[in-house]
Design a binder for these strands. Structure first.
Length: 497
RNA sequence: GGUCGGAUGGCCGAGUGGCUAGGCUCAGCUCUGCAAAAGCUGCUACAGCGGUUCGAAUCCGCUUUCGACCUCCA
């Protein structure tokens, strides 16, 4: 039995996972900034880490999964003019920040639910932890690694880098960073260009603002994750996850802040998922190539040939290793949809299948292969969460299941023990760990009764060789999205699209 | 410009120094009143050029090319 190994971005190698507290695992994942609607790009990290979290639970860990909501900072609603606090508009006409934040948080939650992502154990908000952030900033100042200028506070990266390996996570050298000639906000206030804000003074027109020892302002982007992760997971915790694009500067800054505040690095294992690209380019606001989740599910985007079910998207994402880029295309999604339908049907078939009870396999070779495929699932997951390989093995098993049902494989080909293992493993990995759900809801009893009636009438017509009637029923139903299948044993099943 | 990571069969994608991943498409067959589904069979690829090796798609070097990060970003 292999053990879980994960690729640690910090050391750039696969390492055996050992939790700090035996039996418990702490996982922190950078959540969304809720100033706009979630898009396809957001789906990847949250689905990836949902599987991480599910797998850790499967391994027996009691997991605390913390995923924040970034609802504070210098942002305004997409597509809406920035409004200022001192404008003449009436209160109700103005954009209320919490209103916007609530709207997009809510949409994000709905999207996650559709993807069947488990809710995190704690979902802390930045606005709910202003006090903790201020405390942490004061602590860093008192230790001499941050300074205040005009109501803003900056982290002294140069000083930090002299003693600590700043840039190790993202693989860059501080000297290179100092070369940049960008004109950033507050650049003239900083002692060095690489310094980053812990607290920013709010200009008069800025709506989001809080009192602090340095005047009214709002927290810097990086400090929230440090403050909240240490509060809920401890000063050192097991896994920190997020998109690769957050490695620098966000995660690098988190390491620096926490290292000064607590005297040691915050995270044991850093995990980063790769990006979703579209036509080879990263999907992101700045590229104007974003497909929102609502558009994805409804098909209402010029790039989409059709609507895609959340489970199809989830399946497609899991068919690719999380550290590889995943290029979006209609062809790929359509292939995933067909593949997933086939796989799920095999899974459902397996649930209904009964084993004759023979202790010994009549087909020892097949029995042995099946056992290998099942055992490999754990090995693949343990090898840095290789969901793609797990899925590949499902597709090895599907023909065996379908073959038993269709008679191409003998019912007693597998031993009773293997059959039990097949059922248990398929369900554990496909449903519990990969988190897949059927594409269609349970059918209502009434529909079921109506269809049984039609199926009976059609059976009768077929018996009389009245194929005109039987085909009419089948074709009419097909036009309405209900497919009838004549099974080998003479029964008829249906599926609704 | 700096740093890092890719280039795999018609398409998507995994992966390892030698043992045909898998999915989708396509073609043929079996079953079937027909269809669908299912099953079986076929389609052997790793950007290019050198090198290391008994053997490399897998290791090294160079070239071409794409991308990510360096700025808010999942």
């Amino acid at each position: 039995m292999s053990e879980l190994h994960i690729y640690n971005s910090y050391t750039r190698q696969k390492e055996k996972f050992e939790s700090i507290t035996p039996g418990y695992a702490g996982l922190y994942v950078c959540g969304p900034t809720v100033s706009g609607e979630s898009h396809l790009g957001h789906a990847r990290p949250y689905i990836t880490f949902d599987v991480v979290q599910r797998y850790l639970r499967h391994l027996g860990y009691k997991v605390r999964y913390v995923r924040n909501i970034t609802d504070a900072g210098h942002f305004e609603e997409e597509g809406r003019e920035a409004e200022d606090k001192v404008s003449e508009k009436a209160k109700l006409e103005k954009l209320e920040p919490m209103e916007m934040v609530h709207k997009y948080t809510s949409l994000f939650h709905k999207g996650m639910a559709m993807f069947n992502c488990d809710e995190p154990s704690i979902e802390p908000t930045a606005t709910g932890h202003i006090v903790e952030q201020i405390d942490m900033i004061q602590d860093i100042i008192s230790k001499g690694y941050a300074y205040e200028v005009n109501g803003s506070v900056y982290f002294d990266v140069t000083k930090y880098a002299a003693e600590y390996p700043y840039g190790k996570l993202s693989g860059r050298v501080l000297e290179d960073q100092l070369e940049t000639t960008r004109d950033l906000d507050g650049q003239d206030e900083k002692r060095n260009k690489a310094d980053f804000a812990l607290w920013k003074k709010a200009p008069p027109e800025h709506i989001m603002r809080w009192n602090s020892p340095w005047g009214e302002g709002f927290p810097g982007w990086h400090i929230e994750c440090s403050a909240m992760s240490s509060k809920y997971l401890g000063e050192t915790f097991d896994i920190h996850g997020g998109g690769m694009d957050l490695q620098f500067p966000h995660h690098e800054s988190e390491i620096a802040q926490s290292t000064i505040a607590h005297g040691h690095p915050p995270v044991r294992y850093w995990m980063h998922n790769n990006m979703i690209t579209i036509n080879g380019k990263k999907m992101g606001k700045s590229y104007n190539n974003v497909i929102k989740l609502s558009e994805l599910f409804s098909g209402s985007h010029p790039l989409l040939a059709q609507a895609y079910h959340p489970m199809v998207v989830r399946f497609n994402i899991l068919q690719t290793h999380y550290r590889s880029t995943l290029d979006f295309s209609n062809e790929a999604l359509q292939a995933s949809e067909k593949a997933f339908r086939r796989l799920w049907e095999a899974y459902e078939t397996l649930q209904k299948l009964a084993h004759p009870g023979n202790e010994n396999a009549s087909d020892a070779e097949l029995d042995s292969k099946v056992n290998t495929w099942l055992a490999e699932c754990a090995d693949f997951m343990n090898d840095d969460l290789n969901t793609a390989k797990v899925i590949a093995n499902f597709f090895e098993l599907a023909p065996v299941i379908n073959g038993i049902k269709g008679g191409q494989v003998k019912a007693d080909a597998l031993s009773a023990a293997t059959f039990v293992a097949l059922k248990a493993t398929f369900s554990a990995y496909l449903v519990d760990i990969l988190g897949m759900e059927p594409l269609q809801e349970e059918q209502s009893d009434k529909l079921d009764k109506v269809l049984s009636l039609l199926i009976d009438i059609r059976k009768d017509a077929k018996k009389r060789k009245d194929f005109a009637t039987s085909d009419l029923i089948r074709n009419q139903l097909a036009e309405n999205g209900i497919l009838l299948k004549d099974e080998k044993d003479g029964s008829v099943s249906y599926s609704v699209n």
